[in-house]
Amino acid sequence: MPLVLLRVDERLIHGQVIVGWAGPLRIGCIVVADDALAESEWEQDLYKLGVPAGIECRFLPVATARDRIAAWQRGSERIALLVRGVPELGRLAEGGSLADQQVNLGGIHHAPGRERVLAYLFLSPEERADLDRVAASGADIGARDLPNAQRVPLAELLTRRD
């Protein structure tokens, strides 16, 4: 499965992704699915500062990324796909495009309306409902900030108050 990481993380490209995940998973390409970033070259340049030579980096609108998921899953390129939040994940999952795809919740931080679930994961009631819907479409959702951490499956996250 060449779409080796699909991660929800507000920080998008940062140390945990580059050092923690990209190396061990031998990622060849990082795709950021984000409508605003796809239009902002200077912000793309900032994110690219953190990407080592040898890893390609692309910024696509969410709808474009969704249309390419099936091809990425069939292809040979080892891809990490990043989105910044649950709403973007929900849009990616439209049409069942994330069926059987593992989804990694890696970093959603405190904000008004959100409750702490894990140290690195805070969810609002709306986000919990959205995640439930994405899971119902066939995605296998769990939380794990780094590869050596215990994966917490969505069923446990949805009932958990840390």
Binding site: I18, L49, V51
Partner: peptide
């Protein structure tokens, strides 16, 4: 670090 959340916030 030059990149990541700290570098990104500073440059913004």
């Amino acid at each position: 670090l030059v990149s990541g959340s700290c570098g990104f916030a500073a440059r913004k």
